[in-house]
Write a protein that binds this DNA or RNA. Sequence first.
DNA 1: ATCAACTGCTTATACGTATAAGCAGCCCTC
DNA 2: GAGGGCTGCTTATACGTATAAGCAGTTGAT
Lengths: 323, 323
Amino acid sequence: METMTARPPTSSDVARLAGVSQATVSYVLNNRADSRVTEETRAKVLSAAEKLGYVRHAGARSLKTGNSGLVLLPLSDVPFGPLATRFIEDLDHELTALGYTMITYGARQARGMAAARAWAELRPAAIIVDTVKLTSASVGLLRKAGVKAVVGISPKPSTLVPTLVADQTEIGALAARHLRSQGRRKLAVIVPREDGLRDIGLDRREGFGAGLQIDLAFDPASAQEVLPLLRDIDGVFAYNDEYAMLLMSTLADAGIRVPDDIAIVGADDLPLARLLRPQLTTVALDISGTAAAVVTFLASLIDGTPATPPRLWTTHLIERSST
Amino acid sequence: METMTARPPTSSDVARLAGVSQATVSYVLNNRADSRVTEETRAKVLSAAEKLGYVRHAGARSLKTGNSGLVLLPLSDVPFGPLATRFIEDLDHELTALGYTMITYGARQARGMAAARAWAELRPAAIIVDTVKLTSASVGLLRKAGVKAVVGISPKPSTLVPTLVADQTEIGALAARHLRSQGRRKLAVIVPREDGLRDIGLDRREGFGAGLQIDLAFDPASAQEVLPLLRDIDGVFAYNDEYAMLLMSTLADAGIRVPDDIAIVGADDLPLARLLRPQLTTVALDISGTAAAVVTFLASLIDGTPATPPRLWTTHLIERSST
DNA sequence: ATCAACTGCTTATACGTATAAGCAGCCCTC
DNA sequence: GAGGGCTGCTTATACGTATAAGCAGTTGAT
């Protein structure tokens, strides 16, 4: 309370208390190898900084050095599960190790020029963002604002920016291959009606290949509606495990047996997949090691070295009892 | 590509192109009411800024004005579902409307002094953070760094900072009341073994009152292990809907009927609650309006006006078929 | 006609930091 | 014992912005 009105301590305050110049404080606190400072002076500075509760001003530093050390990760519209959460955590960990500060920017609906302006204000070193949020003009703005690495995430490579390709088609393809290997021939694919999910669903469907497309909202009523479409179907790929669950509960109510009448493959290997009865066969995504590769990639771009974007994940099928 | 080496345009660049002084540019772009600028000059400035792709430097602005307009929301260790996501989005929306920039800070495991220092570097106007990440010293550091509103989130009010109380006990209490009203007397409460979840679970258990506490990891094997404990139980409150699902699938395998043998109440009203068979009775949280109240509260603290933290949610029971 | 008040700008400055450049004092070397 | 080079600092400066203060030119009141 006694410090309410006092302004935050600066490096000059630290210098004054330590009896040295502000420059010396800066040299000490940044641990510059080429600065020759006595161990004694160093200790004085560190103790003064500690005593004052000094914290450097990121804005001032960014102003002077021309880069903020920030990496921006504007959140996608897609509600993300354990997988994406894990990836973000890994990414943060790797970036911190390299001295960057990762920030996930809140406004999900933000896109286009207005969003780009907001991002550019922070003068980040890099930004990783869903390509649907980018336009040619906004990429230009970001580049002009000094953002070294503008990296997209998208199911398909973008022409605007280097893109981390989240290839959805191989997920569908793997599901299709498995269903066919089980002798299923009358196939269908569930595609979500929900906005953020639909495009992903269509890509998974594309990879699946031939089969009846069934649009489904995440809602029991919607599932009830599409039930007749499954009359003549013996294998379904369900976009993801949650939609598979929705389908399975509806099928159970209708007395349709899984997998005897209809085999079902989900995707994403969510925790609930093992809890369903029958347990759900699903396409799992493996992202271990991805964050490190992405960070290496970012570092290259920031250095100006050309580099190839890494793959985001590998896929494999986990066979359980629903097929 | 032609602008790769050029440094980002500054307000002085805009001024030069528009043929006015840098000060005029600043007055125009900040739309200051007390600044007297001709419509003609204003147009010249805006067009020059547009042409150059000018974006102001947030760091420099924060340096000059002494505040960054940032609101920090370091993510909690608790994996959050649709509810928390919705709250964060609402919060962002409200804060944007007031001219603040909300940032969700990545490092989940970050806490204590190191984290506080990282937060303080950005000189945010406010920070909302799980109180387990705070210490007396770190709160002091943040205050000293000029953070006007240091606000905690926690199941219990904190002595360190004004706290948004996420009261878990009323959830447990509501579940207990419902089970008793159904004539259930031999009650048990599921408490998660997982780190971030356990404390929340214990609070829900506390609100539940008398009953057997069963510690459960989110894993079918763990559920199998605790099954014998349910021999003499006729009503279970399951921490949340996901744990309820785990329990239900294990009970079904064991031939124990829900709700005939055991009634089950979940919490959080996750989408999957309606997809379980029987459909899951659950304690729902209502957070509509909370974000707006929180922002009002923050604004008060930033102004220096004393204010009382708002409630985070209200609860109500949704009765379905599992009880 | 005089001067105060207003208009529409410009000039000057400070915010906190990183770092280039400078500068005493000392140690070597020959 | 002169001077070159090193050590351990200090001094000075620029980054981009917001805003207080100043200042010509015009208007209005008396």
